[in-house]
């Protein structure tokens, strides 16, 4: 059952990758990335059980944290062109140095 669940997760990752390739807007691609991240977390946990090495769970935990922070950071970059700006949407189109 563990192997079957891993296989189903890999199929889900493939579907999400298809959406990331097709997605018309950047938000579709980001949503697909977030889904891939969640699936990767679960695959890591399942792999730990498959190989009898529960240390993989720590990696899954760190991956989950990075996933959320990564999505929000990329989102900020695409909204403001800068990861360092908080608050209102920037009006200028120029890229910061």
């Amino acid at each position: 059952m563990l192997a079957a669940a891993t296989l189903a997760l890999l199929v889900t990752v493939a579907l999400a990758l298809a959406r990331a390739a097709l997605g018309p807007t950047v938000f579709d691609r980001l949503q697909a990335c977030s889904t891939v991240g969640t699936c990767a977390m679960l695959v890591l946990a399942l792999l730990g059980f498959l190989g009898g090495r529960p240390e993989f769970l720590d990696i899954a935990l760190v991956y989950g944290l990075l996933n959320v922070i990564g999505v929000i950071a990329v989102l900020k970059f695409f909204l403001h062109g800068d990861t360092n700006k908080a608050g209102a949407k920037s009006t200028s189109e120029d890229t910061p140095s």
Partner: peptide, 8 residues
Amino acid sequence: CLVGGIGL
């Protein structure tokens, strides 16, 4: 999980 992927 598969349903979510199909929905996506």
